[in-house]
Design a protein around this nucleic acid. Structure first.
Lengths: 199, 199
DNA sequence: CAAATTATTTGACACGACGTCAAGAATATG
DNA sequence: CATATTCTTGACGTCGTGTCAAATAATTTG
């Protein structure tokens, strides 16, 4: 066996950086190959296709991101935890120059329309899985907060609502690029969820 | 002058149908030309580029959609109006088979990353403009509701929150395709906004 | 230590997409 | 009836994805 001339993980990082900045459809394997100092054919040999390469790169990102979220949601009052959650979310959307937006949201909207369209379906599941796991983290945080008397609504509904707002923030980020606005919306969402009538 | 052999508006409708179903990047001018029974070159002659054709088709859609929203927001109690607003929004996302999702949200996430990237910037403005106009409609509705004592929060903040939720719904629609879930989230959002503490 | 094995690399190819251009076709105008 | 003007048509260049066979280089085996 001949050993590979490039580092698998390096390529994954380089590829995801491009996917994040330009989207999957907007990134060519030639771009990635040039950036990684690898021949295009080698990428096909190692990963199979652009979509498969993206999936691997995305899973990497998703794992890292979940860990960071878990950390943000792990300390302080419920309000502090939710604030840290939105902070991390928005900071993530606004990272890079120019800001790269949310890769999950972009990926979801880049999907083809057909129901079972090859790897599209696999990608959809990867995106949906991250969103679900984030929702679960938020719900757990709210449930814990409820046990401590900091929240008295429905944790599942509230978590879904909060995650829906973060997806909306990802979209508004692309529309206006106004980070202060995003933070205002986030603060308002926290108020709505925590100051609910009867709370 | 030689007369055009196709109807300008027909092509716009046919083109937007494809853009809506498959996204701008996922739709080729060959697709549109075939569907419209027009030569590809004629489209370039008449519209200039794919992006320009999309922009015209999108403006058409945006105008129609705004009118429909205005109608939905125009009658009944504030709660009824907001319910009709979310109803129309979700129904729009779920129209077609398979459901086509939200063209504005998809368009926004399909934009290139570079700040001033040719027509991308024009498209971004078109998307942002529709979102802004929707926000204004919702805000007016909330203000009117406030004058009638049906709402006592900040109309601007609440309108922005509601529109953010609709953008989030567009994303979740792609992730899960679960219309019942979308309607639950919408109902919860209305409750949060209208039942705010002190309301 | 030499040689066969085996995966990786490399370059050529087919195909489809965008956009441009010059040449042909059809109407309106003088 | 001829001319000018616009639309249409088909060919071209470039770039994207994905495939394939041939060349290459290390490891494993004898």
């Amino acid at each position: 066996m001949r050993p590979r001339e490039f580092d698998h993980d390096d390529v994954l990082r380089i590829a995801f950086d491009q996917f994040w900045r330009k989207g999957v459809r907007g990134t060519s394997l030639s771009d990635i190959a040039r950036d990684a100092g690898v021949q295009r054919g080698s990428l096909y040999n190692a990963f199979g296709s652009k979509e498969a390469l993206f999936l691997q790169a995305y899973e990497r990102y998703a794992g890292d991101y979940l860990l960071a979220l878990q950390k943000a949601l792990g300390t302080g009052s419920l309000r502090k935890r939710l604030t840290a959650f939105f902070d991390l979310t928005i900071t993530n959307f606004r990272s890079g120059s120019p800001p790269r937006g949310c890769p999950t949201t972009r990926g979801l909207m880049e999907l083809g329309a057909a129901e079972g369209e090859g790897l599209d379906e696999e990608a959809r599941q990867a995106f949906a899985s991250l969103v679900s796991r984030i929702t679960a983290l938020v719900q757990d945080t709210l449930s814990a907060g409820a046990r401590r008397g900091e929240f008295n609504g429905n944790p599942a509904a509230a978590a879904l609502h909060i995650v829906t707002v973060t997806r909306g923030l990802a979209v508004l980020e692309r529309a206006y690029g106004d980070e202060a606005q995003l933070r205002k919306i986030a603060a308002h969402a926290i108020d709505l969820v925590l100051d609910k009538k009867g709370g």
